[in-house]
Design a protein around this nucleic acid. Structure first.
Length: 460
RNA sequence: GUGCCUGUGGUGUAGUGGUUCGCACACGACCCUGUGGAGGUCGUGGUAUGGGUUCAAUUCCCAUCAGGCACCCCA
């Protein structure tokens, strides 16, 4: 028993403590904006991943993983030199060879690069990919906004048909619906390069004449990135924008036809969407359709769950042949935050088939082997060898919601038997040790059959 | 990157310019080597960090760091 804190015999002991404390540096902490995903959150992550993978499989999108590190110019050329992402949010540095590299802030550019680099225009078009992984942006962290965050996404490269756009939106809506989060899709068209250029001129003219009423940011945007003014939340700017020309009214024939088609398809699929003439995305590569997915009841400012659109020029901009494409990216952290808010219950994992409890050293030895033997025969056996008490072991079994427990003690060791306990009801019987597997299997089948029948009639 | 708010054991919280900062949960040990951790006893663990004011700071002030809100941006 020691009470070092209270002792009045300070000097040596305390001095020593102080010294060692000084000598051992404090444990380095989590970097700002980074997050550990602890085991207790993994069920959310696994669940979302499972749903994304199933959806991808249903729609034949194949998994692709591109590196986290790419040449900086890849993003500068695709996302855009003058975007915030490239200008101030990338983790960029020179590698030891002096090459300028960046942690990827998004994935479309990397995938387009891979498409070109591996000559995927030789595959049946469109090539469909899905991905899941970490991305990096140096932003000021907030709930739902981290410096390392995870996204999943779908990309369909090589098809200009508007049904691709519509189907992506259908997929996304379905994804969030499956998880249990009601969402609305906001949609707009920013046209192709040509109509955008004309519209930008039109908008610039309109806004220039009202420049003095715009906020400081927008005055700056007027020369640099006019379209972004549409996104401004300042009241005065919004008022001015109310009468501003809408890009959808200034699309050329082809872009207009494309947009109309997309909307037609969405109507046909019973997708509810909101036309948002001010929806402009912060990445330069978008053409024609752009859309964002929002929770039905949006709370907080970081709540856009995902966004996407068409990027018909990107592959060409990066040096490939002109190739139309369309994609979507969703934020996983934000999705999980929404799930937590909605208190969405995740289907619990299947419990193990059996729990092996042991008492005494020789039983413990044998149980070690038993667990592995059962596992190899396809029975999922849980165990806990770190404690002795049977009470404790059974409580672990109960927590795991295991239906059966096997109890191996000294008595059983002598008789070459084992106790098989049905955790539901608590009946148990002595079984010949060599027949454990058969007996267990028999009972598991029985339980399975009962569950099957029971479900036909009543469901809890 | 700007403005604002917050910071008490692992988690959630109470409280205070003055000996030992309280509680709950969680965690560990024992009662307990034969049955679902219920009960009992005991225990580990904290004022984010660094300065300043003061006889005295966890409390007041400043800075830093971290989290959050709004902006910005976007996932």
């Amino acid at each position: 028993m020691q009470k070092s804190k209270v002792t009045k015999t300070p000097d040596k002991a305390e001095e020593k403590n102080a010294e060692t404390e000084k000598r051992i540096p404090k444990c380095p902490q989590l970097l700002r904006g980074m997050k550990d995903i602890l085991p207790e959150s993994q069920k959310h992550w696994n669940y979302v991943r499972k749903i994304v993978e199933e959806l991808a499989e249903d729609y034949t999108y194949e998994r692709i993983d591109t590196p986290i590190l790419e040449e900086t110019s890849l993003f500068a050329r695709s996302v855009g030199e003058n975007t915030d992402i490239v200008e101030k949010e990338m983790f960029s540095f020179e590698d030891k060879g002096g090459k300028k590299v960046s942690l990827r802030p998004e994935n479309t550019a990397g995938i387009a690069r891979a498409y070109i680099e591996h000559g995927m225009l030789d595959r049946p078009q469109p090539v469909r990919f899905f991905y899941w992984g970490p991305f990096f942006r140096y932003d000021r962290p907030q709930a739902g906004r981290y410096r390392q965050f995870n996204q999943f996404g779908f990309e369909a490269i090589g098809d200009s048909n508007p049904i691709i756009d519509a189907q992506l939106i259908v997929m996304c809506q379905s994804l969030y619906q499956t998880i249990g989060i009601p969402v609305v899709t906001q949609i707009n068209s920013v046209g192709c390069r040509e109509c955008r250029r004309e519209y930008e001129q039109l908008l610039t003219d309109y806004l220039s004449s009202r420049k003095k009423f715009l906020c400081e940011d927008c005055k700056r945007r007027l020369t640099k990135n006019t379209l972004r003014i549409l996104d401004c939340k300042e009241k005065d700017c919004k008022e001015i924008l109310a009468d501003a020309p809408h890009i959808v009214d200034h699309l050329d024939e082809e872009c207009k036809a494309h947009f109309v088609k997309v909307l037609e398809y969405l109507d046909e699929a019973d997708i509810t969407y909101q036309l948002n003439p001010f929806l402009v995305r912060g990445l330069d590569y978008y053409t024609k359709t752009t859309f964002e997915i929002w929770p039905e009841k949006e709370e907080g400012s970081q709540s856009a769950l995902g966004g996407g659109g068409r990027y018909d020029d990107l592959v060409e901009v990066l040096g490939g042949r002109p190739t139309p494409a369309c994609g979507f990216a969703g934020g996983i952290e934000r999705l999980i935050i929404s799930m937590r808010e909605k208190e969405i219950v995740i289907p619990p994992p299947e419990p193990p088939d059996v729990f092996v409890a042991q008492l005494g050293e020789s039983a413990k030895k044998k149980a070690l082997r038993l667990v592995e033997d059962l596992r190899q025969k396809g029975i999922r056996a849980a165990s806990n060898f770190s404690t002795e008490g049977l009470k404790y072991q059974l409580s672990v079994a109960a927590k795991l919601k295991v239906r059966f427990s096997l109890i191996l003690g000294q008595k059983e060791m002598l008789d070459k038997t084992i106790l098989l306990r049905d955790m539901e009801g608590g009946s148990q019987e002595v079984v010949d040790y060599n027949k454990v597997y058969d007996e267990l299997k028999k009972r598991m089948e029985k339980v399975k059959a009962i569950i099957k029948n029971g479900n036909n009639h009543s469901e809890e």
